[in-house]
Simulated scan of single mutants.
Amino acid sequence: MPTGSSGDLKSKDILSYVALGDSFTEGMSDPYPDSDSVPNGRYRGWADRLAEHLAVHVSEVRYANLAIRGRLIAQIRDEQVPRAVEMKPDLVTLCAGGNDILRPGSDPDQVVEIFESMVADLRATGARVVVFTGFDTNWQPVMRHLRGKIATYNMHMRAVADRYGCDVVDVWSMKVLSDSRAWNWDRLHLSSEGHRRLALRVCEVLDLPVDSDWNQPWPPPEPRDWRTARQEDLHWAREFLVPWIHRRLTGRSSGDGVNAKRPTLERCEPGDGRRG
């Protein structure tokens, strides 16, 4: 079993990076500034931003992103991990299990068993593997009751990371993400600013130099009266919560018919990161 990370990423002439996961890693809801000209309105997200940042410090970065919105952890294991293993990348980011934990009746103990099998396969390739804790949902009244389940999964996941020598991005402790401005209107996906800050946090874990602070305090929020807040809650329930519940009841997924945005290792240019 490999132990420890695979060394300084900046010392490599050519670096291959594969991102695995669901909508969190696909990049929703962080569109590229020129997304109207990109087929299917491709999202950017923290993983693209990380690859762009790596390309500033490494001569050549080859990047694939296999993440697809709505994917459950077993689907990520069956669909994405074998492809990543075939690519034999230097670096893998893996965030999985969130969609499972959100489902009523899900068992964090069972979810983490699948998670460990994926980590074992990825680390066996010699890749440096970065994993992510779940978010603290205390700021979100509708999902606050999930804190215990998420915390349990986080503890199991950390134990797996210790056994296999993975880097851990402790998203739970990122209190800066408890601000609503870090989130899209659906309250489930990070905003562009949230993705930017998370990318900076991952860079910190990977010991990559950055010129911004992910933990920089937010400016004072604009005042809102209770009527505005109530209207926003009703809009959210109508436009997001009800359709989300309907998909769960009908066995459908937001990722049905969606393909990976970067299915193969392709060169990533540092200039991409300067587009916004």
Rank of each mutant, 00 (worst) to 15 (best):
A84H: 04
S23T: 01
S6M: 11
E86K: 14
L66Q: 02
K10I: 02
G4N: 05
L265K: 12
Y32G: 08
W244G: 08
R147G: 01
R187G: 09
D211R: 09
E86Q: 14
A127T: 02
A237W: 15
T250E: 01
T125G: 06
P82C: 02
D109P: 01
V171F: 10
E266H: 13
L198Y: 06
D207S: 15
T250D: 01
G148M: 04
P33E: 11
D186E: 09
E266C: 12
D22N: 13
E204S: 10
S16R: 15
H235L: 13
D36F: 07
D78K: 04
P217Q: 03
D34M: 04
I76Y: 03
W139Q: 05
G255Y: 08
E232W: 01
G273H: 06
P104L: 02
R158Q: 14
G45L: 11
Q75Y: 00
I76F: 03
V61F: 15
N184C: 09
R197L: 02
K261Q: 14
G271D: 12
D179C: 10
V61L: 10
R158K: 14
R274C: 04
P217V: 00
L198N: 03
T250Y: 02
R83F: 00
H235P: 00
V210F: 08
H156I: 04
G148Q: 06
G98D: 05
R128W: 00
G251D: 04
N154C: 02
T228P: 02
D48G: 08
R197Q: 04
S16A: 11
G271H: 03
P221N: 12
Y164C: 07
R187V: 02
L206V: 15
V142L: 15
C203D: 11
A67K: 03
V258M: 06
G41N: 14
A84C: 12
R62S: 05
S173G: 09
G165F: 09
W218D: 10
V58G: 09
P223W: 10
G255H: 08
Y32N: 12
W214F: 15
R252E: 13
H189K: 05
R71C: 05
R247P: 00
P141L: 00
T228V: 03
V81W: 06
E222D: 10
R247A: 00
L241K: 13
V202G: 02
Y63T: 03
G105Y: 03
P31N: 03
S23H: 02
P39N: 00
W244S: 10
R262L: 11
R71Y: 08
L72W: 09
F24V: 06
D30G: 01
C95D: 06
P2K: 15
Q216L: 10
S192I: 04
T264G: 08
T228D: 12
R71L: 11
D8C: 07
G45W: 05
D8V: 12
R44N: 14
G126P: 07
